[in-house]
């Protein structure tokens, strides 16, 4: 199965983070909030207008935009 990104999850679907791309400052902040490779992540819901997304990471809820979410790869 090809690697997916967070942006491709459906609501309440989850995955394990394998790789985080994107700009350095964003990547670093995301990791510091607990989204390091190996961490499970759940897509809780999508904002009513289609963006941004709400994720659950280590029991806390984060909001990121679809475009940035597509830089976070998941294992199947």
């Amino acid at each position: 199965m090809p690697a997916r990104t967070i942006a491709e999850l459906s609501p309440s679907e989850s995955g394990i983070v394998t790789r985080i791309g994107g700009e350095r400052a964003f990547r670093r902040r995301l990791m510091e909030l607990g989204l390091v490779p190996g961490t499970p992540v759940v897509l809780c819901q999508v904002a009513p207008l289609g963006d941004p997304l709400e994720l659950e990471v280590r029991g806390c809820r984060l909001s990121i935009r679809r475009r940035d979410a597509s830089a976070v790869s998941l294992s199947a």
């Binding site: 994107g22 700009e23 995301l30 806390c60 809820r61 984060l62 909001s63 990121i64 935009r65």
Partner: peptide, 9 residues
């Protein structure tokens, strides 16, 4: 630079 959103709910 485009600033990504990263916000705790």
């Amino acid at each position: 630079p485009r600033v990504p959103l990263l916000m705790e709910l």
